[in-house]
Write a protein that binds this DNA or RNA. Structure first.
Lengths: 160, 160
DNA sequence: TATTGTTATACTCTATAACTATA
DNA sequence: TATAGTTATAGAGTATAACAATA
């Protein structure tokens, strides 16, 4: 498991730009947006994965539950397209959720089937929302005020 | 879109805040910074990986070359600490670079060894710099003007 | 005692090719 | 023909545990 992640290191939020304290002063990569993007995502996803172990869910599984909330018309392929997951990779993912009793399948026709949350799935989703809401809040808290509002639009421009 | 650099694969790009045109209008995840961070990183790293295939390098390998540039005092453990890679995972990584003739090892004492770029490694690094410079430029070009300057500081706050 | 380098192992995510059955 | 679901497989990144040798 991802466990090198400490519980979000900085609960005390900073309200200003970090003036210095570069962990690797000689790191020629510290100014590269691509490199920072990768590191930030790795660090944050490790943290989220750790928090989700309490719900016995992986990030991808929790993401599927979030997408499924309130919908009853999505097929495996739909979910894959929405989350950028290959059809083939949806199979073990959904199998795990089904084995855990969190989703069930309902035939649409003889070829397709809708993926639905079970009641246990709804309950688990509620807990997922608590975890992710808090996670997203903590994440944004780490971003200095001056930059916070720009994060989502900037990431959105890079997301697909 | 900005004009000079070839935009990353997706041709439909916007230069301003996206008012709409959400690829997944019903996606309840589209506003979550953590989710967007993961998606953005995945998309950008896939793009960078593709570009680096021309140099027969993986991202992690190119990153090591970049870190090694101009330095001759870094051990495997040092590199791992700087790049957040476990000691154990440095072994096959450096083995590949060594097999490719891009690095060599020089004993510091009977326990540690410095990792140095060979001449071939220096040459490859120069090409890596070309690729990554262009990649970083293209990446930033995708971020709307109003948000561009905020990306690096925001990511930096999340990177450790 | 702590650190370096290493071996071995395993899990996650991702990617591709190919097959069957159905729309 | 195109799509849905699936199987099988592979690559890449990441994580842990454990060991021997040396600082």
């Amino acid at each position: 498991m991802t466990d090198h992640a400490k519980p979000l290191p900085n609960p005390e939020l900073r309200d200003h730009d970090p003036p210095a304290a570069d962990p690797w002063p000689d790191d020629p990569l510290a100014a590269l947006p691509g490199y920072l993007l990768r590191r930030a995502a790795n660090a944050m996803m490790a943290e989220l994965a750790t928090r989700l172990t309490a719900l016995d869910l992986r990030i991808s599984e929790a993401t599927v539950l979030l997408l499924l909330g309130g919908r009853e018309d999505l097929t495996s392929a739909d979910i894959g397209k929405a989350l950028d997951i290959q059809r083939a990779n949806m199979v073990p993912l959904l199998a795990r959720l089904e084995t855990a009793g969190l989703i069930r399948r309902e035939p649409i026709n003889r070829k397709s089937q809708a993926i639905l949350l079970t009641e246990a799935g709804q309950d688990r989703l509620a807990r997922v929302r608590e975890v992710t809401d808090r996670f997203e809040r903590d994440l944004l808290d780490r971003v200095p005020d001056a930059h916070r509002a720009h994060l989502v639009p900037a990431l959105r421009a890079l997301s697909g």
